[in-house]
């Protein structure tokens, strides 16, 4: 997997004003993400928590993937987390502000997902 190219896709996405943190999460593997010092989170512990619990998420995600699970959203305090599934064990994950213009961000999330799919 060309991780450097993948990282450049993630770094490009992170330049969006309202993408506060981003990673490519993979089940039972180390996730790919830009350096955390590039994140714009006021509370960085949220990202650490997400990173450390991703394997638990994939257990649930795998159960629904045969039903066509494509995206997962949840609100977390002042933030919102978007999961765009790439396969049953890989997901593009981004943290955005709770009141961000989600529609426009989703389009660029989708473009990043398509770019990563081409690389895998």
């Amino acid at each position: 997997m060309p991780e450097e190219t993948m990282l450049s896709v993630l770094e490009d996405l992170l330049r969006e004003e309202d993408i506060l943190a981003v990673m490519l999460a993979r089940k039972n593997e180390i996730s790919v993400s830009p350096s955390p010092d590039k994140f714009k989170l006021k509370d960085p512990s949220i990202f650490s928590l997400l990173q450390s619990t991703m394997n638990d998420f994939f257990i649930v995600i795998e159960k629904f993937s045969s039903q066509g699970l494509d995206k997962v959203y949840f609100e977390l305090g002042n933030y919102e987390v978007m999961f765009f599934l790439i396969s049953g064990d890989t997901a593009l994950v981004a943290i955005i502000p709770g009141l961000a213009n989600k529609g426009l961000l989703e389009v660029e999330m989708e473009n990043s997902r398509r770019a990563i799919k081409k690389l895998i």
Binding site: K102, G103, L104, L105, E106, V107, M109
Partner: peptide, 10 residues
């Protein structure tokens, strides 16, 4: 329309 549809704009 693009705001409402998000990724579904595709």
């Amino acid at each position: 329309i693009i705001v409402t549809l998000g990724a579904h704009i595709y």
